[in-house]
């Protein structure tokens, strides 16, 4: 396993370097920089712009240096925990992300738990009771979940929660707690608001997972080893859990790689619609305003999380299913 771990780590290193170069190139691609956009915005509002001040700012933020120098400074800063300075917010990037990152992680973690808790029993039931009325009904619900746009469901749920439970519209807490330190009342308020985005964001994922689990499990249930297990008198539930269900979980282990970046960037549109204090809307604003260090740090963070996620899922797959594939071959 050590050799596998080392080989996977070796693959990660050039991948991360390439990603950092690509990310930096992407955030530099639009013509001009943040200050150019800033000057154009001031001029469009009829305000005078002092070229000396702009030149001073350009020098101060290192925007007049060659691109490779800017890149090295940026990467060197990240290694020291300094993600740069946000021009738009006039604050260090780490301060802007602050609480938002933890709230984003909370929302996404709860969504993943919701998705798994709901999808697994339904997916297993649908597969083991194929073509029953319950299977048809759950399939219909699954298709509805897949087909309903997030933002539409968000609006409906906001209205429903407000009318039924009196929950305030939008946000992850009542207004009086915004910017306040954490207290039991604030936690209670977050919990009162949290279930709405969790259901909204989790619905399509739940429906998708039900469909995939049902399909995977149906494939496995038709294999000969299941028939052999039945013929040997293995109890049906034990047979299901120990063999076909385990085999049908491999695609879900592979999906772990997709969950980590979702912790930061998931459901940006829903966050905008529901005014959630998560990181998605900030990323969107940073990309629109060419706030290069904020946008770059976000993109780099997402890429690193993706690479780590894929690494973890590969480790899990190697640990759970260390079998050769018949089309494979050994390297010598």
């Amino acid at each position: 396993m050590l050799i596998y771990l080392i080989r996977r780590l070796i693959i990660m290193i050039p991948t991360l370097i390439a990603i950092s170069v690509i990310t930096f190139t992407i955030i530099q691609l639009p013509p001009g920089d943040y200050l150019t956009t800033y000057v154009a915005e001031l001029q469009s509002q009829g305000e005078a712009v002092d070229p000396k001040k702009i030149e001073f700012l350009r020098q101060q933020y290192g925007l007049d240096r060659p691109k490779y120098e800017q890149y090295l400074l940026w990467v060197g800063g990240i290694l020291q925990g300094d993600f740069g300075y946000s021009f738009e917010h006039s604050l260090p990037v780490t301060e802007i992300i602050g609480d938002r990152l933890w709230l984003t992680v909370l929302v996404t973690f709860c969504t993943i738990v919701f998705t798994w808790i709901v999808a697994f029993p339904i997916g297993i039931y649908s597969a083991t009771h194929q073509y029953s009325w319950a299977d048809y009904s759950l399939t219909l619900v699954g298709f509805l979940g897949l087909a309903t746009p997030h933002f539409l469901l968000a609006l409906v749920m906001l209205y429903f929660a407000n009318v039924t439970f009196g929950t305030s519209i939008g946000g992850l807490m009542d207004e009086q707690f915004i910017g306040q330190s954490w207290s039991w009342a604030k936690i209670k308020s977050v919990l009162e608001h949290l279930w709405i985005p969790v259901i909204v964001i989790g619905t399509s994922g739940t429906a998708g997972m039900i469909r995939r689990l049902r399909a995977n499990l149906l494939d496995e249930l038709q294999k000969q080893y299941v028939t052999t297990g039945r013929a040997k008198g293995l109890p049906p539930f034990r047979l299901l859990i120990k063999y076909p269900l385990r085999m049908s979980l491999n695609p879900f282990i592979s999906d772990i790689g997709d969950y980590l970046p979702d912790l930061v960037s998931s459901a940006t549109i829903v966050s905008v619609v529901m005014s959630l204090p998560t990181t998605g809307p900030i990323l969107l604003d940073a990309l629109r305003s060419q706030d290069m260090y904020l946008a770059g740090s976000f993109l780099m963070f997402l890429a690193v999380l993706t690479v780590i996620g894929v690494f973890l899922s590969d480790l899990a797959l190697a640990a759970f299913d260390p079998r050769i594939r018949l089309h494979g071959g050994l390297s010598r």
Partner: peptide
Amino acid sequence: RYYSTRRDRTQGW
């Protein structure tokens, strides 16, 4: 145990 660093799990050891 069989390990491969490729997504298609070929060329492993």
